[in-house]
């Protein structure tokens, strides 16, 4: 479904800060994949998502969706079939507007016209969907989002994203800014929604056990490369120990170093 061919990303070309953040990446994301992405800081995980989403344009190589080249398609156009959630819960919702307004804005992708879609039928639909979050948000639909906690906003962003029925979901450490309890709730919801709606998804995490527990496929990135890509039964048999061992086998890196970089808890 999504295919990256020899895709590289070079930042600051020709300057002292020149940085090859991605090195000739080749990746095929199949329909229905739920891929967890793991790797140390600066490995290029977010850069990979930025390329897929169209936030940045690759220096070389191409990106295609269903065999159509989208390498130069602007971010806002690709957003019509990509649902993306960031680490910062504030990026998914508008603080200055009510919950129901936020849900209405994100319900349908693409340009909006002078139609008034927010009516009592729509509100009833939103209320029913909000109940799934089990956060009592269905009683607070007129409240400003500035009044909600980061966890509530991230759960809401997740629900709104799912309701817009994206073909591909990109989650960039979307629970990292939340406290452990809320992080667990949002992660459970994520898994539930992805399974229920059969969403093709990619999820960046720094938590090795989450990367192993969730999804059908795992990518490990290091220094701008995908060094490890497993799926199916092989992925099911993975443990944190095996993952660390695999990393050493491939990179011959110092154990203490990367233990600090990849949390296993």
């Amino acid at each position: 479904m999504i295919e990256l061919k020899n895709t590289s990303m070079l930042f600051g070309a020709g300057t002292v800060n020149e940085n090859l953040a991605l090195k000739e990446i080749n990746l095929k994301v199949k329909e229905g994949d739920f891929i967890t992405v793991i790797g140390s800081n600066g490995a290029g995980k977010s850069t990979l998502f930025n390329l897929i989403a169209g936030t940045i344009i690759p220096t070389t190589g191409s990106i295609s969706v269903n065999n159509i080249d989208v390498t130069r398609e602007p971010e806002y156009r690709r957003a019509r079939y990509i649902g993306r959630i960031f680490q910062n819960p504030l990026l998914g919702t508008a603080s200055n507007m009510s919950l129901e307004d936020n849900m209405m804005i994100t319900y349908r992708k693409g340009f909006k016209w002078l139609k008034r879609s927010l009516n009592s039928k729509m509100r009833e639909f939103f209320r029913k969907e909000l109940i799934q979050l089990k956060m009592g948000l269905e009683e607070r639909m007129k409240e400003n989002l500035a009044m909600f906690s980061g966890g509530q906003r991230q759960a809401l962003t997740l629900l709104m994203m799912v309701l817009s029925k994206p073909a591909l979901v990109l989650l960039d450490e979307h629970t990292a800014a939340l406290d452990p309890k809320n992080a667990a709730i949002v992660l459970e919801l994520t898994d539930k929604f992805i399974k229920e709606y059969k969403l093709t998804s990619m999820m960046i995490t720094h938590n090795m056990s989450h990367a192993i527990e969730y999804g059908n496929r795992l990518l490990m990135m290091d220094k701008g490369e995908i060094i490890f890509d497993i799926e199916g039964d092989e992925k099911k048999a993975l443990t944190v120990e095996k993952l660390i061992a695999k990393f050493h086998e491939l990179r011959h890196a110092n154990f203490e170093n990367d233990r600090a970089l990849l949390t296993e808890e």
């Binding site: 602007p74 971010e75 806002y76 156009r77 957003a79 019509r80 649902g83 993306r84 990026l91 998914g92 919702t93 508008a94 804005i105 994100t106 992708k109 693409g110 340009f111 909006k112």
Partner: peptide
């Protein structure tokens, strides 16, 4: 958020 909605 506006960009993510597919709006320029």
């Amino acid at each position: 958020m506006v960009i993510s909605q597919g709006v320029n």
